[in-house]
Design a protein around this nucleic acid. Sequence first.
DNA 1: CCAATAGTGTCTGTGAGACAGTATAAG
DNA 2: CTTATACTGTCTCACAGACACTATTGG
Lengths: 274, 274
Amino acid sequence: MTTYKNEQEFLKQYDSSLYEKLSMTADILIVSVSSKDVTNYRKNEEKRMSILLVKRKDYPYKGKWCLPGGFLDPKKETLEECARRVLKQETNLSDIYLEQLYTFDGINRDPRLRVVSTSFVALVDKNKLKEKVENASWFDIIKMEEKNHIVSFQLDNQEETIEFQVRKELREKTSDRYQFYTKENKSLAFDHDLVILSGLERIRNKLQYTDIVFNMMPEYFTLGELQQVYEVILNKKLLDPAFRRMIADKVQKTERKKTGEGHRPSYLFRYKHE
Amino acid sequence: MTTYKNEQEFLKQYDSSLYEKLSMTADILIVSVSSKDVTNYRKNEEKRMSILLVKRKDYPYKGKWCLPGGFLDPKKETLEECARRVLKQETNLSDIYLEQLYTFDGINRDPRLRVVSTSFVALVDKNKLKEKVENASWFDIIKMEEKNHIVSFQLDNQEETIEFQVRKELREKTSDRYQFYTKENKSLAFDHDLVILSGLERIRNKLQYTDIVFNMMPEYFTLGELQQVYEVILNKKLLDPAFRRMIADKVQKTERKKTGEGHRPSYLFRYKHE
DNA sequence: CCAATAGTGTCTGTGAGACAGTATAAG
DNA sequence: CTTATACTGTCTCACAGACACTATTGG
């Protein structure tokens, strides 16, 4: 390499085709909570986590479901901007909670060419969504169960049920990091089964020490509803008094009540920042 | 877009230059702990966190310090493999704790062309290092202090001291995520000041709920030494009894003692997996 | 009244924070 | 004997887990 007098001069001479290049995408795990009505008029509706998937119209993986995503335009946007662009396009929403998750870069994850994908997690309140977007569909997570290092998923969008399994392998004894491998996957494109698991685990972890739940809640909610959301994400029942103590200083009681439920009405609360 | 009969046929036709491309690098924050001798013969040596930096030989940022890193070869390697290659080259060590940190992709982070960098954190035991590597130097973190959302750093490698400041801005009220901005930085190349802060915060968080410390410890160590490492990473003093309770089931006492220190000798312990 | 949820009072055990005390080496 | 660290005993207080109890609606 020649020596240049200064950075300016160096940049003028620089041949940007020197290094091998590749394409990148931003893929988004859009997560929300949905409610399932229940026959018994007294019972509350059941909550479920739900994620947005898109049916692929073209090869590769034509006809399979995948996460919303798009190619990065390296000249104009950052990965996060790219993710927000996709988010706008798929949900028509801006101002959404969006967090970088992980960069997936298996060499053959895309059969066309080397594509590195930076994945994001977005949390939305389903009530804010209006029109249905073409080819996109919300899948409820009706099962997510870990047994012997295998996580089994079952997703449902009212029309079809898809299943897949991911193997979790502890990477080293000193940390909590897992390597994920596809065990069984007939319905999802690329490595999006692994992205989904990573993302849901991230949400579960963050639930414990942040206030991210409120990104999936409407402005007014009952504590019972909030508790249900915690329970469905953590995948376990919580005790009422403990739960109420835990969130006491995160929420603000209002005068309004939710009535007509066949049982004692519940006060509505809202998120209290600070 | 034309319609293809099947995936095979589609791939044959696929023009991989369709999407704009870019280059990627893997940059590594290599962290270790160093000891500083103390004049008083009775006192224990003081511990410090230390990180490996490399002096840039060429433009851009010629003469500035940066994290070890290298361009990804998209045909042959994953980002983690790329990072391990760099790690081998800079420390001559394999089998090192390595964890993906974050993907930095500011549009102008590299003045030459669009380069997206996936950063990694590596933890090493300095005792395993032998030869000094050309252009690389270990910097002790002699100050890392947060005040009014500004984090001030002071690093020292015995020959020079470098300083920089990063501004932390909370991204949203519901989470613990910060956006980092360079406040003051004359000595470090690219956005590596931000990478360093992210990485050190990651280590501090993980210290609390994993066993990653032991990646920076020699096989045998005293509990005093281990406590010092915790203290220097968490940047605060810990109470002896609480600390010992906390790590009791992570370590295994041996018969060996560390003597000749001018005070009561201490038993040597080792990491107990499980 | 019944069924179902809303919401509260309180006991108990665990475990972190705190402090004080004893032990043991080198000089 | 002094100094500095090694290591332990124990008190207290906060808080999570657990259970039981009361309150309130629609049908």
